[in-house]
Write a protein that binds this DNA or RNA. Structure first.
Length: 439
RNA sequence: GAUUCAUUUCCCUCAG
């Protein structure tokens, strides 16, 4: 994407300057084209006679660090110095961040001391980077100590500092302290931003503290004019959901609607699944229709949930009808879809139809998996069709499906219920021969 | 035109 642009510029006779190169390099880094970025860095001096500056080097060093290539980053820093380019505060901050990202906190601190010794002045970003690193490793005392050191050195905390601290305590499940920090922050005259609330509300949701979380949702707009985002809603819905407060989660969905930030399919699928689990498949289907109207794009999982919902109620014909309906609209059923319907037939006692379906899909080139066979074998055993179950057990191997412990458990369970102990023993030895553990 | 905080990996569908 970026390189063609560069050649295009050249072909029209535009001579890029250092700044332009840096922008191009940055774009390459963002596209995970760090090696092309390195190439371009070389080219700018060798081909174009341009001297990379602080910003250029820092950009590339940052790109390397994003790719976890810390040693390369350090080498480039040395090269930069030997080329007479003095690193800036940003350059050092990037390197400190590199150490922290790799979890090398002690080296980060050493590095900081080293560069301070050679006259470098750290800033809030430097401190915050390391503080964040400590928090990420759960080293709360060290984080606190460094924060104090930062303050006595005459640096005032800023919003990002507070966010880092709040996030740190959230990750440490210290929700009380995290929530307190927000108050301290406001008291101290600092403005919380969307990151502050995203961190805190998400943390509260994960700790099942839905009351405070919902209160903060209101507060963020009333007190600070902040607009909630997808992340926040996703966590709120997930949270109220865990507590089975579905009606409340539906209310949140309505709010989202008017905000235009639609959570991902995962959240939505969970909601539909909840209804299906509770035997309320109609409501799920109706919700799906409503949501499709407002721009939600159902995926394979979505349809599998609804199909399974019908099957679980014994309404397999409706499930297959839905499948036909959506197949016409470009939806591709997967193995789970097929397994779901096969299971539906089995549970309805229609094992004949289940086996037929397997044959049909295999003819169409569909690949069954272990679950397909386990489902069928279980269904056949329940109807006491043991010969056919056994036939499938042999067939599945031919079709590249390796029987697992569930397969054997199903068979063994059936055989022992029938008192066919010789069969049980044979199956047990078959299973151990395959390296499986009986359980 | 470059650096630190939330947002990629807690979690969605099928057999047992």
């Amino acid at each position: 994407m970026v390189e063609p642009l560069y050649y295009q510029m050249r072909s029209v006779g535009v001579k890029p300057d250092v700044k332009t190169f840096t922008i191009l390099i940055k774009a390459l880094c963002k596209d995970n084209e760090i090696d092309s970025a390195l190439g371009l860095l070389k080219q700018m001096s060798s081909v174009h006679g341009l001297v990379p500056n602080q910003v250029t080097y820092t950009t590339v060093i940052h790109g390397l660090i994003e790719e976890d290539r810390m040693e390369d980053a350090l080498n480039l820093w040395k090269l930069m110095e030997s080329n007479g380019c003095i690193p800036s505060t940003n350059t050092y901050n990037v390197l400190v961040h590199g150490y922290c990202q790799q979890g090398r906190l002690d080296e980060a601190v050493m590095f900081l001391e080293e560069i301070c010794g050679s006259g470098f002045c750290p800033d809030t970003v430097t401190f915050n980077t390391i503080v964040n690193g400590f928090f990420k490793q759960g080293r709360l005392e060290e984080a606190a100590k460094l924060l104090e050191e930062m303050c006595v050195s005459g640096f005032y905390p800023d919003t990002v500092n507070f966010n880092t601290i709040i996030n740190g305590f959230c990750k440490a499940k210290e929700m009380g302290i995290a929530a307190d920090m927000l108050y301290k922050m406001v008291e101290g005259g600092f403005k919380p931003n969307i990151a502050t609330y995203t961190t805190l509300i998400s943390g509260l949701c994960r700790s099942n503290q839905m009351g405070p979380a919902l209160r903060l949702l209101k507060q963020m707009s009333s007190d600070h004019g902040l607009v909630s985002n997808k992340e926040i809603y996703t966590n709120l819905i997930g949270g109220v959901f865990k507590q089975d407060r579905v009606e409340q989660s539906l209310e949140l969905w309505k709010e989202i609607d008017s905000n235009g930030c639609i959570p991902g399919n995962l959240t939505y699928n969970r909601l539909l699944h909840w209804f299906c689990r509770h035997g309320r498949v109609e409501e799920a289907a109706r919700l799906l229709e409503e949501m499709s109207g407002v721009g939600f794009c159902p995926d394979t999982v979505t349809f599998n949930i609804i199909i399974n919902g019908f099957c679980k109620k014994g309404r397999v014909s409706e499930a297959t009808r839905l499948l036909k309906e959506i197949s016409g609209t470009g939806f591709c059923p997967d193995t789970v879809t097929i397994n779901t319907i096969i299971n539906g037939f089995c549970k309805a006692g229609e094992t004949g139809k289940a086996v037929d379906l397997l044959e049909k899909i295999v003819e169409e080139g569909f690949k069954p998996n272990v679950v397909t066979y386990n489902t069928l074998i279980s269904g056949l055993c329940k109807r006491r069709k043991y010969q056919e179950a056994r036939r499938l057990l042999d067939e599945m191997v031919v079709r590249d499906c390796v029987p697992n412990i569930v397969t054997y458990n199903t068979m063994i369970h059936a055989m022992s219920k029938e008192g066919k102990m010789e069969e049980v023993i044979e199956l047990l030895s078959e299973l151990t021969k395959k390296g499986l553990e009986p359980n």
